[in-house]
Design a protein around this nucleic acid. Structure first.
Lengths: 253, 253
DNA sequence: CGGATAGTTGAGTTATCTCAAATGCAGTGG
DNA sequence: CCACTGCATTTGAGATAACTCAACTATCCG
């Protein structure tokens, strides 16, 4: 499938703004990373360049990227939630990040064939594969697109570093509270919050794998949080009831 | 101080190869990151561009970068060991990486003013500050220098992700064994190993802060390792006695 | 309805932490 | 050269956060 300039009207990200999906993705990420600047008009700029990409839809629990795969595509999430993880030899898993619509699995994919990471759909996911070389040259061609990209890149690193701080130095309660607040923030930037309520498709084993804990323990902590009226989890959605309390529990800035 | 092409003869990295310090640093990092390719001749290429930089030397334990500082310089280590860390509000610290000669504090510094990180000298350290804008434009000007840079960047991210896996999913023994093996690898790439012996200036609190543990516990683990004849630590140097055993303890690939 | 996956709860275990005291060791000033 | 101060390390005893195991319940989906 070929995408040229403003030619794509697509579900989720693409649809919303009605221009090139890759740019939309980065605009999203830029918002998340840096400011609230409204997406600008980028159509004519990419008018000349051709960004080859293909859309895929995959059901929940399915693998999007296998750790042994050396792909030459840059995947960007259009709809749904996914998880990027790393595994030790004996199978212990660590989830490095949850991907939301507009997220790139990793900006590193833009430069090199990467392997070792597992990307897994949490909900049904639709994503878009960009050919690395095209992606790369588009980014390098337009300086402010590159600027955007480098911000996303930096933001990605910041997140990774914060994760290390969480895993190394915070208690289970703090970690889980932070995860919730973090997700709430990211969803808010995407207009995916209904007030204080968010869609929350994560299973407790996802939370456990992301925060270096056991599902059993996650259950206990989440139970406490609910009994303390910090949050309410019902069905597959989560409502933050006591923001201040949750922040306190999270040792939030 | 101005550095132009091959004009610099400098201690450590620079001296060894006798060409532009920034390139040398990246060559080093490239070696560490990707391959063993011998540094190529890069003089004439940078002949036209001017890279402004200044050299600083700082005693052990002193801060190189304060978390509240928004600097417009990209610091690269020339000599000595340093640590990059992040702190929570209440002072809990997580060391994200140890910097060796040739390392850039973070490639993210090349694009943005970053704050929040502490960089601290472990031994006496001499480092070089490059003006960000110059640094940036040099990198963008020469495609294969950019290629190099992107590899370092990717490697940095890989390390951060592995750290998360370590902190989230591995035992104290594994973490410490891996840290040692990791450092040995990195030092070997820099020709800084004498056989199986390396200079080892880390205090146990550095190891603790890097691996999300307590100094007390680090002491105990290190004690076991020595009693089990895996390593020997004497003065400020460490010798790997039983590589296979240490690897086993580390759950090494 | 049945079979799988997910979540809850309790009891007992363990890795790691905290506290504290003792020792070593390096640099400083008298 | 010695005493002194400030760090670093070692060691032990006791505390605790998080884990394991296991049984039970709830939820989902064909």
């Amino acid at each position: 499938m070929q995408v040229k300039g403003a030619a794509v009207a697509e579900e989720g990200v693409g649809k919303k703004h009605g221009f090139c999906a890759a740019c939309a993705a980065f605009e999203y990420n830029l918002c998340a990373a840096v400011s609230d600047k409204a997406p600008s008009n980028r159509e004519q700029r990419n008018g000349g360049a051709r960004l080859v990409s293909s859309v895929h839809t995959i059901p929940a629990r399915r693998i999007i990227r296998h750790p042994k795969e050396w792909s030459e595509f840059v995947p960007i999430i259009c709809r749904g939630w996914a998880a990027v993880s790393l595994a030790a030899l004996d199978g212990r898993r660590q989830i490095l990040s949850f991907l939301l619509p507009g997220d790139c699995v990793s900006t590193a994919y833009a430069w090199h064939s990467i392997s070792g990471y597992t990307v897994e759909a949490i909900t049904d996911v639709t994503y878009r594969n960009f050919k690395r070389d095209d992606f790369k040259s588009i980014i390098l061609k337009y300086p402010d697109l590159f600027e955007l990209f480098s911000k996303v890149w930096t933001e990605e690193k910041t997140q990774a570093d914060q994760l290390a701080l969480d895993l190394g130095r915070r208690t289970a309660d703090e970690r889980i509270a932070r995860l919730i607040l973090n997700l709430a923030d990211r969803l808010a930037k995407r207009d995916m919050m209904q007030g204080r309520t968010m869609e929350f498709p994560l299973r407790q084993r996802h939370i456990a794998d992301a925060m270096g804990l056991t599902p059993v323990h996650v259950s206990k902590v989440l139970g406490e949080f609910q009994r303390a009226d910090l949050v309410e989890i019902k069905g597959r959605s989560l409502t933050i009831i006591d923001t201040a309390g949750l922040r306190r529990a999270a040792d939030w800035h």
